[in-house]
Simulated scan of single mutants.
Amino acid sequence: MTVPALQETRDRIAHAAKIARRKPAEVSLVAISKTHPAERIRSLLDAGHRLFGENRVQEAQEKWPALRDAFPDAQLHLVGQLQSNKADDAVAMFDAIHSLDRPGLVTALAKAMDKAGRRVPCFVQVNIGAEEQKGGCPIADTPALLAAARDAGIDIAGLMCVPPFDVEAAPYFALLAKIAADNGVSGLSMGMSGDFETAIMLGATHVRVGSALFGARG
């Protein structure tokens, strides 16, 4: 990773925000560091970036304790699917979770947060393209899952989606924004390296960018 890649991504975010008549500060850049070694992550940390995303609890446990010792203000988000039996570990490791997608996980996370005495904000992941192979709550079940999470004392940070691959993402981002508005949710975790500018124009508050920052996966 080179510092220019980080600056270029920030510039692209700022440009998209300007077109959408938004402030760049309204968009959080989550640097997706999954599969990349600690030394590549450290180059972004050295450049001043502090918000990162990992896909797997175990991988984060292997890489991040030492990085956090060196950079205690770093923030780490879980962006991948979470098994209920990993809820305790996720609550201990992450500052936000983007993949709350089913009632069983609500129960597991609420229990883990109560045990840890720590509240971790969660995005409800919506299966926006109704794809069987993808995680995420069905659109029709999203209001009930949001209600269950709130009833369990989980702080709802927003909604998250991964649109179908290789099709125009804009309609899916617009749909997620509508679902969020209909349910009184403000955060929108949507947009990756290939489409984050579109996501920003449609209201994204968190964009999850990996390859544009790190290059190909390690």
Score class of each variant (00 low, 15 high):
Met1Val: 08
Pro4Tyr: 05
Glu8Cys: 02
Thr9Arg: 04
His15Cys: 01
Ala16Tyr: 01
Lys18Tyr: 06
Arg21Val: 15
Lys23Gly: 12
Ala25Ser: 15
Val27Cys: 03
Leu29Asp: 08
Ser33Lys: 03
Ala38Pro: 01
His49Ile: 13
Glu59Asn: 07
Gln61Leu: 14
Leu67Cys: 01
Asp69Leu: 14
Pro72Arg: 11
Asp73Phe: 03
Leu78Asp: 10
Ser84Gln: 01
Lys86Ala: 03
Asp89Ile: 00
Asp89Tyr: 02
Ala90Met: 10
Ala90Glu: 10
Val91Arg: 07
Ala92His: 15
Ala96Ser: 15
Ser99Asn: 12
Gly104Met: 03
Gly104Asp: 10
Val106Cys: 02
Val106Glu: 03
Leu109Thr: 08
Arg119Glu: 11
Val120Lys: 04
Val124Tyr: 05
Val126Ser: 11
Val126Lys: 13
Ile128Phe: 12
Cys137Leu: 04
Ile154Cys: 06
Asp155Val: 14
Pro163Gly: 01
Phe165Tyr: 13
Phe165Pro: 09
Glu168Asp: 15
Ala169Ser: 15
Ala170Pro: 05
Pro171Asp: 10
Phe173Glu: 11
Ala177Asn: 02
Gly184Ala: 10
Gly184Thr: 07
Ser186Trp: 00
Ser186Thr: 15
Gly187Cys: 08
Gly187Glu: 08
Gly187Ile: 05
Ser189Thr: 09
Met192Ile: 00
Asp195Gly: 06
Glu197Lys: 01
Leu202Lys: 15
Val207Asn: 06
Val207His: 07
Val207Gly: 06
